[in-house]
């Protein structure tokens, strides 16, 4: 039962992450070069700052998802203790 719940939580977490990150993919893929062989331009502009934004967002979303899952686990413990 415990495993089951963990699996469900992990699946939800993955789904949430996918829902957040997948819409970004086509945006990244569509950037074609106007001149020269340099490609994927948006992510390479302005000193590649968008890469940094992406990395920080991933870290932030990951940490928040972790906090969220801890929150839910505590909630489950609370319910268990109450019964």
């Amino acid at each position: 039962m415990k495993n089951n719940w963990l699996n469900r939580a992990a699946r939800r977490l993955l789904l949430a992450l996918a829902a957040l990150l997948l819409p970004l993919l086509p945006a990244l893929a569509q950037q074609t070069a106007a001149a020269g062989p340099e490609m994927a331009d948006t992510m390479r502009q302005d000193g590649k700052i968008y890469v940094v934004v992406g990395v920080i967002l991933i870290v932030l979303v990951g940490l928040l998802a972790y906090l969220f899952s801890i929150d839910r686990k505590v909630g489950r413990l609370e319910r268990e203790v109450r019964d």
């Binding site: 940094v52 934004v53 920080i56 967002l57 932030l60 979303v61």
Partner: peptide
Amino acid sequence: LVYTVVMGL
């Protein structure tokens, strides 16, 4: 927080 990171950067 997401707003802060994106707009902040």
